[in-house]
Write a protein that binds this DNA or RNA. Structure first.
Lengths: 212, 212, 212, 212
DNA sequence: CATGAATGAGTTTTCATTCAT
DNA sequence: TATGAATGAAAACTCATTCAT
């Protein structure tokens, strides 16, 4: 660590040409691969550059450092999560009169499992090993908050929902969903419980908790 | 940051004199303090030694490196958790005829919150930042497994418990409990929900899920 | 002084650019210089890097450590020795009918003295102080063996050679030559005996021993 | 290396009691054992103390440091060598009228082989790995010088000895003897040539060289 | 006298980052 | 733009030696 750590997370050069955009992609893909293979602490910019078939110099042309690359990966994941979860709740909420608790719960559960199942090992490194600064932590919280808000709003119009505080309940549900999905999908030894079955149980838990 | 991933986790010299035993204590305490202040990546053996008022040489006399020290801290925590959770379930199970779901749930929730509330910031670093090897992961899983087994056994004799599979349900409850407690106690921004209130909701969720 | 005896002797990065090849040269030259000035135990990678006018990082870019650098120096010396001694014997053996003992002996003696006289102080450190692993020892033995074989073959066609066992005699001659040359050229206090005179005596000894 | 190396080679406390003298012996024996097992660079005072079943503190009660211990071992060996070689030559020289070259040569060869054969592995470490200061080097030279002088004196009265310079010849013989014996006895792979046979060849070489 | 815990200067080694080509 | 050799601050770790008990 030559100079004191200065958290530069933004991309350095906005890739304008098609070739450059391709390089960024290649670099991020390589980052993901190396992270999975060697873990956060074992990953170096040289590893990434080599895996990407690019020189370190080029890497630094596009990213101000290692942190920024990981951050880009995290950001990507969060953005996707936000879009998909939002879409799910919005879609459910759209059939207004017919909004029911169980279908909503199932839709959320499926979305969450899908989000985690795509790249579980990368996900584990990204959210368990990488030491995120407060900025990222706030970012994650905000995402959960928004999901919880959407859920809380939906709960208001679903008959049969009985909770002391809709907002609190919604946040607990979102957190629980995220945490359990993360654990079960992430942990390789968990093979005993098939995703289908996990989904059923999560739905049961949500419905039971909210449905009084 | 070398971190060449050579898993030397065991202690080096077993302290035989009282003075030495004291030194080990001082070192572990200092490790916890530094870990909280600077995070895993920012913690160095030199920092720890300095914080302990001891020379680096002494540190290496007792621990083969940073990893081993953190591991000792983790191990300590897990051991305590195992003892306390086990005691709680055993105690509940002892009033045989009168074993009821809600008191059991509340006892577990309280124990778990207590476990996390004692040193939340250290807990966060220890279980979120530190890159644990598979050995530790297995260790944690085993602990949860045992807790889940105890719970499953208790569920068998509680009237009114309706679940598809007692073992699966117990594991989900334990995981959920751990995950949510960790999140809410750990996260400083979460100040909005008082522990008492959190406990109530967790109990509600458990009872609802298990109680049909 | 760690010297944890992890035999990493091979080069690390094969220099591809001309600049890099120059750096390797500079590093080895500096190694020789420092070795002579401070001895094996007193030589550190930092000394070498400084003497080479290069940063430690660069040194480790090309060599995994002090041992490897010294090993490279040794290897270089052995390779040269092998080539030169081989050439001498081959040349003598080429004037087939006229192969005589004394000229052969003198040629070998001169070659050996030349080999040692070039850098006696470095030679001394390299072969007296440096703790060579069994690999290097075998390497040296093999070189001597080959020289001895060549000599043994030559002895077979020289008239007047009387020995019990040509191979044994050849090995003793080679060893003796190496050992005495090393001692006398290496030892600074030995100034009393001029090289010319030493050569004469060595030739006398060889001829007397082999010539019956 | 905490403080700058200050070559303290003499013993620290002259052991006056029997117990103390025993400790010194135990320490030196342990030093020899550890040197053989781990080589010079790998040997530490703590290793030695442990092998001796004594605390480091006690070690430093008797020796000012690691160098001094090795030095004591070397000194011991040299003293014995001096005595034995001197005795051999003196004995031969005593039967004045009948002093013959071959018996003298054989006696010297046997003595030298005996000297090396006793503890070849220790001998190798002591005289190949240990970086001796100039003092030790001078000491060794002086010993050889004295042996050479004694031999030169003997040569003067042996009929049939034909050399250009008796002193030079004597020194070369002593050096050759020492060097070849060291090589052949020291090198484990040398098993091919039995000591008896080696002795014969060395005698032949000496006699041939000196005997005209 | 013996003990062994403690010391800390000195080395090795890594890796994020720069910059001449 | 791309390259990859070079950088060097910072971290890990050792071990000869001391000294309080």
């Amino acid at each position: 660590m030559p100079t004191a750590a200065k958290p530069k997370l933004g991309p350095r050069r906005r890739p304008s040409q098609a070739r450059a955009r391709g390089t960024v992609e290649v670099l991020l893909t390589a980052t993901a691969r190396v992270l999975v293979r060697r873990g956060w602490a074992g990953t170096t910019t040289n590893h990434i550059a080599e895996a990407a078939g690019v020189s370190v110099g080029t890497l630094y042309e596009y990213f101000p450092g290692k942190d920024a690359m990981v951050h880009a990966l995290v950001e990507r994941h969060l953005a996707r999560a936000e879009v998909e979860l939002g879409a799910v709740i919005a879609e459910q909420a759209s059939n207004l009169g017919a909004l029911r608790l169980e279908p909503l719960a199932r839709a959320m559960v499926d979305a969450m499992i899908g989000l985690h199942a795509e790249a579980p090992r990368l996900h584990r490194v990204l959210f368990e090993e990488v030491p995120h600064g407060p900025a990222v932590r706030r970012r994650v919280r905000a995402l959960e908050e928004r999901s919880a808000s959407a859920l809380a709003a939906a709960l208001a119009v679903i008959p049969g929902v009985v909770v002391r505080d809709r907002v609190v309940a919604a946040r607990l549900v979102v957190d629980m969903l995220e945490a359990l999905t993360h654990r079960w999908v992430t942990d390789a030894t968990q093979a005993t419980l098939p995703p289908r079955r996990l989904a059923d149980e999560l739905v049961r838990m949500i419905v039971a908790y909210l449905g009084g």
